[in-house]
Structures are given as C-alpha cells and as structure tokens.
Amino acid sequence: MSNLGQSIIKNSWIELAARWILGLIFIYASLHKILSPADFAKIVYGYDLFPHVFINLIAIIIPFLELIAGLALIIGVYPRSAAIVINGLLLAFMAALTINLIRGHEFDCGCFSAGQSGYSSSTKVTLVRDVIYFVFGLQIVLFEGNRRSYFGRLNSRH
C-alpha cells in the first residue's frame, strides 16, 4: 500500500472524524424509519427483493442496527465491530440498489426519508454515496493504534 494510504489508515484524527461522520449519518438515517415503521416496510416491499414474510422484520430491525452501530461508533464502544456492522449494511444496500439498477426497477431507496411516495433520488448518486461511506468504514476497521475519544484516548488497541 502507498505511504499516503498507510498514513491515512494510521491517522487517529481521521479515524475519529470517520466515526463521527458515519455515526451521525447512520443515527440520522435510522430515526425516520424508527418513527414510521409502516412506511419503511412499504419501501422495503418496493425493493421487490425480499420474501414477503421477512419484509416487516427487515423494516423493524435494520433501523435499530443503524442506530446502535452509529451510537457505538460515536461513543467509541466496539468501534471496529460497529464499523464492520455498518459496512455490512452498506454492502447489502449497495447490492440491493445495484440489482434494481441493472433490472431497471424504479423505487424509492428510503435511505433518509420514508413516506414521500413518488419520490426517488437517483440510484447512481445513492450508490456513489454508499461507496464513500464504505471507505470511511474501512478506515475505522483497518485503523491500528489507540483510538481517540471525545474525552481522551480510548484504551483498547483494536
């Protein structure tokens, strides 16, 4: 890996920023879904990818994965594992978006706003955004050394 790449991965300030940015984005994204689960379930249905029996469970659980992982990143609890959870979610989102992009299925991604029926932001823009988030997540996962916390240094070396 290049020296630049290495120094980015080892930079604890970048790691802290990445955790806060990703954490806040995921907490924000989770809130409207938690507040209106029925609307979000309908969006999940709109993806036309999941067996009907799982749609409600997906709509109930995904927002809380986003919330808990986002909070963990910001507080600094299990940061690497939280980043792995978030990157796992991002991979799933990107797979779903890509499948629907390829087969030309139009739908509302429901990323940040449930309940605006008829509204769909560009799938490609959403994909690019997810890739950027994924890179942030990767920095947190690959980071080695003492992580910074808001209050001082976190002790754990993972």
């Binding site: 938690i34 507040l35 209106s36 689960p37 409600n56 469970l57 927002p63 994965l65 808990i68 959870v85």
Partner: peptide
Amino acid sequence: ILVGVAVTLALVVNYLSPKGIALVG
C-alpha cells in the same frame, strides 16, 4: 453483542410503540 442489542431493542420498541407493525405484513 451489537446485533443482539439492536434486534432486542427493535422488537421491544416495535412491540411497545403505538406505531409498531406486525411481525409479518
């Protein structure tokens, strides 16, 4: 642990919330 906390919290909140939904739609 993270996933377990999230799933538990999700099910509890969904059960208690007036806006909750059935487990199967």
